[in-house]
Computed example of a mutant assay.
Amino acid sequence: MSKFKAICLLMILTLLLSGCWSKRELNELAIVAALGIDKVDNEFEITVQVVDPGEISSKQPSSGRSPVITYHSTGATVFEAIRKMTTVTARKLYFSHLQIVVLGDELAKEGIHETLDLISRDHEFRNDFDVIVAHDATADEVLNVLTPIEKVPANKLLNSLKTSEKTWGTTESIKIDELINTINNKTTSVVISAIEIQGDKNAGMDQTNVKKSKSSVLLKYTGLAVFKKGKLVGLLTEDESRSLGFLRDKIDSTIEIIACPKGDTLATEITHSKTKIKGKFEHGAPKIEVLIDVNQNVGEVLCKIDLTKEKSIHFINKKTAELIKKRIEETIRSVQQNYRVDIFGFGEELHRTNPKEWKKIEKDWLTIFQELPVKVEVHVSTQGVGTMENSLVSKTKGE
């Protein structure tokens, strides 16, 4: 009898199971690779970059069509604009494969808080996509540029962002969840990688831009955009962006160029960098100490210098340390005077060091930050000089 009851129960349960009721076939979806958000008057203008699977497939010959299609829509909110886009798209937009979100320049200046609410709240958006800002351009213009090598421009945007972050140090990859957390932090301000269009913006959407050996229009990352209370207030230069990378302990590798004792230059490759920031209070006054340890290799020698001598290596270490230290100090002063926001995380460090003293200055932190004393110390060690001891330049000059 018990077996009979169990069988009946299982049969009833199978009737209640819904199966794949929510399944969606691939040929019913429009896969969105990139999303652009602009502000036009009082409305949001949305641009989506949708992949054409037939044009990027390695198994099918190209028909000559563009590998991506961009759709546009406007609305009072981002949510409304996306829904209204269904009136022009042939398929339902699918955001689970979204790779990157581009925020337009004007939108960034007005404020990004409202914009980020939907894409951080909606369940169809995953939290593993990056966010960047268009510099002197709209997000629509950026997403309309066709790129060489990478058929899908969203892939180019993402790959360039990550590659330059690891090998040059002027960009930072920031995921949506990290961005939201930083925005909600009342102490540390947000920085987002900025991209610009080099060349004629209108020519970028033409197929000829990817059919020539030299593209007339390129997308280039141009430093880090600084935000204050969710609004864009300025753009760091490449040198300032690299300095910020050192201070935030995000430099994996980069290049430094120093002057040689007898003229000309020498380039080194930074192979490792470790930054320690220490906060302290002296008689209630906050101070910051920064210690950076750097390892490097000699990468290119365009001057006369004997790399077999210890004093030459000592000279290279000293000059590299001085260069990095000077650039970082200049960057700190520039941010303190021009932007007046803590993008370095100094306030967080002071809070961790002494919560009691921090509480006394927390309300006036941005004012105190502008005059905050910061001591920077850089130690450099040269690990290798390459496969040649000295430069070919010296030999060709007969020296």
Rank of each mutant, 00 (worst) to 15 (best):
L224G: 07
I176Q: 06
K162Y: 12
F246P: 13
T47Y: 03
A6W: 08
F129W: 06
Y339A: 08
K318H: 13
P53D: 10
S63C: 01
T182A: 02
T89W: 08
K166Q: 14
I277M: 15
F4G: 07
Q60Y: 08
S241A: 11
K363D: 11
G64W: 03
V233L: 04
K220E: 15
K162N: 11
L10G: 06
D200H: 05
S160M: 14
E289V: 06
L302W: 01
E106S: 12
K278V: 12
D122C: 06
I192G: 03
F79E: 15
T167P: 00
I292L: 14
K156Y: 13
E310H: 10
K276H: 08
I324E: 05
Y221A: 01
L235N: 01
E289I: 12
P355I: 05
V385C: 00
C8V: 14
E25N: 09
L93T: 08
I368D: 03
D140C: 05
D177N: 13
M1W: 09
I176F: 07
K151S: 13
L224A: 10
V378A: 02
D130W: 11
N295D: 15
V374K: 11
Q296R: 11
F129S: 04
M205Q: 15
A81G: 14
R333M: 10
I12R: 01
A139K: 00
T70L: 13
I292N: 05
P355A: 10
K326R: 10
N27A: 10
L13A: 14
T167Y: 11
E377C: 09
R83P: 06
N144G: 11
S164C: 02
E282R: 11
K228C: 01
I12P: 00
H72L: 05
I183M: 13
S334K: 14
T331Q: 09
V102N: 02
R65C: 02
G384F: 10
N297Y: 04
I277L: 08
L107Y: 02
I292W: 06
H97N: 14
V393E: 09
K262W: 06
G386I: 04
G347T: 12
A6D: 09
K274R: 15
D122E: 11
E371K: 15
S57I: 05
S66V: 10
G75T: 03
I82D: 07
L15A: 12
L103G: 04
K92Q: 14
G104C: 03
E25W: 07
L266M: 12
S241E: 07
P148N: 05
E80F: 03
V341P: 01
T182N: 04
T331R: 06
I257L: 12
E282G: 04
G36V: 04
I112E: 04
D364I: 03
N209V: 07
T265G: 03
M85L: 02
I100M: 03
A108T: 08
A6V: 13
E141A: 13
K23T: 13
D264M: 13
K311M: 10
L118W: 05
T222K: 05
V217A: 07
S334L: 09
V102M: 06
K3L: 11
T237L: 04
M205P: 04
K360I: 10
V78N: 09
V51H: 06
A139W: 03
A154E: 07
G75R: 08
N295M: 09
K375D: 12
K175N: 11
F4T: 15
V378H: 07
E330F: 10
R24A: 15
